[in-house]
């Protein structure tokens, strides 16, 4: 464990804990951004430039703004009067433990760790942005297109929900034309 890794880990974990335990929702959201930033730093420290920078661009730039907007538009930002720990906390802990366990099992049994010791191939040199793009456009083009279709559908759905049902200014126009007639002596 190197010093940069330790520093990043402490920042990431402490801001994650703060995001769960602070009372003010906006503070929680901002702490969550700290966690996102820490994760991006971890990616960058592992020489995964694309993953790290995409993490910043998508999560810090877009998802965080979305969360903050959702908080402000749906409820007051004043701290709620209920206890911080919800009654069903054990379910959450169980789900978290399950996820963590499955991740640990996957990582330990992956070929990168179980393969015999010796000169490991230089993975970082292979994961350039160019290679990622080439693979996305050849081997993984179908998943990419499916995700694109899903996102487009979500976007159109959001626009349709946000659209007013009737023509918004028909009433207004009628009013204003009435007004005009009455003043037009």
């Amino acid at each position: 464990m190197t010093l940069p890794f330790a520093m990043i880990a402490v920042v990431t974990l402490s801001s994650a804990v703060a995001a769960m335990s602070l009372r003010n929702l906006v503070h929680c959201a901002l702490c969550l951004v700290g966690t996102f930033g820490g994760l991006a730093a971890l990616f960058l420290q592992l020489d995964a430039q694309f993953a790290g920078l995409a993490q910043v661009l998508v999560y810090v730039g877009a998802v965080a703004i979305l969360i903050v907007f959702a908080i402000l538009l749906t409820r007051g930002a004043e701290p709620a009067q209920q206890p911080i720990v919800a009654g069903s906390w054990f379910i959450g802990v169980a789900v978290a433990a399950l996820t963590f366990g499955s991740l640990v099992v996957t990582v330990i049994t992956s070929s990168a760790i179980t393969s015999p010791a010796g000169p490991k191939p230089d993975v970082a040199a292979d994961v350039t942005v160019k290679n990622i793009g080439a693979r996305l456009m050849t081997d993984y083009v179908l998943p990419l297109e499916v995700v694109a279709l899903l996102l487009t559908a979500a976007l159109i759905g959001a626009v349709i929900i946000a659209m007013p049902n009737e023509a918004p200014d028909s009433k207004l126009k009628a009013e204003s034309s009435k007004l005009k007639k009455s003043t037009n002596f």
């Binding site: 430039q49 694309f50 920078l53 910043v56 810090v60 703004i65 350039t128 942005v129």
Partner: peptide, 19 residues
């Protein structure tokens, strides 16, 4: 390697400061 991406990634972080 991802210079342009880096530029836009850090640029996106300023929106949060404005908020």
């Amino acid at each position: 390697d991802a210079g342009v991406l880096f530029f836009f990634a850090v640029g996106a972080a300023t929106e949060l400061a404005v908020f």
